[in-house]
Design a binder for these strands. Structure first.
Lengths: 333, 333
DNA sequence: CATCAAGATGAAAACGTTTTCAAATTGATT
DNA sequence: AATCAATTTGAAAACGTTTTCATCTTGATG
């Protein structure tokens, strides 16, 4: 019926010491005589005392909780990052408050505010754009923040990513080298810097080096969804694209199936390279060639970086780029 | 530099009222004269006051946070549930502390304990088995708990699921009706009641009604992973199975590709029905026929149910079964 | 105009920790 | 035996709210 909670005070009384001493042994403070420590530990055991983390948070101003803002857990790419984040967080004794933002600016701001209200010790932000409004909130927050799989156009926020520009350039070059003159660029919103400023740049660079004229008819801006990809086939055909680099694996799977269902053969009639190397690439047939990214590690490193900031350690570099690669599977010849 | 936090006390002073009154307006308590309310609100605005949720939690014993224990966010099935949970949680102003358990009993208990320490108002548990140890912890916790996509063998914990037994029976019948005499049953660990007591039971019932002898050579116990499925092909062939019901979509995709890669044709040489109807079923080729489950809704309903418990409302039924179906796609004839 | 009930307010006590600072104890050194 | 520094301890003040009472206002009613 009752709350029936055992408090630090109960332990202190039973062990015949002060709350301060109990607090010390609970927190592993070395300034406690071994004998007293044992005595206290025994009482804790006997009473089954569990420190109240909320009270602790209030007194110490540390909640050992970090906020994670994710566009959609349901997206394999982001959930892979999230897994990396959570594992490292757990390793450092933090918990994760996870919230979906749907990349909706208003929701992002609102979520950020409740996270701050809950006094999280830090935040990992995923998403594609850091809106001005969001940046303002970030600034106001004294709370450390790290971006994961998310570029900051102004380069002032700590983040961990791969070199999207170079990766896409390499992928496109790969496609061109095999004779494709019309390579489509398919991504999410070009309002997102990650697409507009990084991936598209790589695309253009590859074209330029190959002496191919840039044609914005070949650039497709869409949602990161399977359906969206599937519906793209007629448009791709009408511009005569014979290959594509695609910014998301689910989207890529959609494109591939759309093309295949239209009777074309991948990779003989149409080659494609996707971007995230999630497990989906191996599940579909043909398996998708992909830019490889250390997904789990991006999350893990971001979280690790965050722990440093929360600990006031100096981090060598604020902006870390993890290695990428190109994995040939069956959607390229 | 400094914490620079505006407290309720500052607001009270500036507005020339007591903390109690500020608290009242912040919490929408109607017992405040409109004029004072406005005065307070203005000060709050001017000072940009944000209530500290931790202090609030300590004083009110409510954290508006619920814990979610998930085997692995990276699994499409679970992340779909998680999404439903989070959306409803947000709707009711709760936040989610999300932790991966890997279905590891020790980790589950440990995670549960830290959630309790953090004074979450409730818990949604996903996973396949509720171990004895876990049940003990659950009992000790005064905190309301709801299972999502997870059966309680003893039927005493609130949960939301579909009728796995009936669903599997129907799927197997479907396969048998089309002439398959040797239908394999492929699931995760049979230590999990969901497989052992529910799905397998449905499988047996279908066989029985069709007058086919149960043969445990046709029962495959494995991991819920793509790889595990892929490796199953030789074993399936050696027992002469011509069809299978499979307990997880990633696993099913693995089985299908294993079979296909071995040169067989799905569905002509081998038919299969999977269980979770995640978006993966539509991404692979052939598209997988599946038992359908309202994934998102399972999570959503579980969370909704939890809010009732947290609110001490009486819930009509503790154990809710959502409707399932059978979706014919291209892995069955 | 006295009376009362209802409506607004405030003082202060929780809530369960951590942390600061001073006091008490210890033990080694002279 | 006296001294001093280190080591252990405890008292009490935070931490920033909510909540319980009691008190004070109000305005209507007789």
């Amino acid at each position: 019926m009752d709350k029936q909670t055992v408090t630090i005070y109960d332990v202190a009384r039973e062990a015949d010491v002060s709350m301060a001493t109990v607090s010390r042994v609970v927190n592993g403070n070395p300034n406690v005589k071994p004998a007293t420590r044992k005595k206290v530990l025994d009482v804790i055991e006997r009473l089954d005392y569990r420190p109240n983390a909320v009270a602790r948070g209030l007194a110490s101003k540390k909640t050992t909780t970090v906020g994670v803002i994710i566009p959609d857990v349901t997206n394999i790419y982001f959930s892979a990052l999230a897994r990396g984040i959570d594992d490292i967080a757990m390793m450092y004794k933090y918990n994760i408050i996870l919230t979906n933002s749907d990349e909706n600016g208003r929701k992002e701001v609102q979520v950020l505010n409740t996270l701050m209200a809950k006094q999280v010790d830090g935040i990992v932000f995923m998403g594609n754009a850091v809106s001005e409004e969001l940046r303002k909130e970030f600034d106001r927050a004294k709370t450390p923040i790290v971006l994961a799989g998310c570029v900051d156009e102004k380069g002032q926020m700590p983040s961990v990513n791969i070199d999207y520009t170079a990766a896409v350039e390499e992928a496109v070059k790969n496609l061109i080298d095999r004779g494709n003159q019309k390579v489509a660029f398919i991504s999410g919103s070009l309002a997102d810097p990650i697409n507009r400023d990084f991936r598209l740049k790589g695309y253009k660079q590859a074209l330029k080096k190959a002496g191919i004229r840039y044609d914005d008819k070949l650039v497709f801006e869409t949602d990161y969804t399977y359906k969206a990809g599937q519906l793209l086939q007629p448009a791709l055909q009408s511009v005569g694209a014979t290959a594509a680099v695609i910014g998301d694996d689910e989207l890529a799977a959609g494109v591939m199936n759309g093309v295949t269902d239209a009777g074309l053969n991948v990779p003989n009639d149409f080659e494609l390279i996707t971007s995230n190397d999630t497990k989906l690439t191996e599940m579909v047939r043909p398996k998708m060639s992909s830019i490889t990214q250390p997904l789990y590690d991006i999350g893990a490193v971001a979280m690790r970086l965050l722990t440093k900031f929360m600990n006031n350690e100096e981090a060598e570099e604020k902006t870390v780029l993890l290695p990428y690669g190109l994995m040939k599977r069956d959607t390229t010849n």
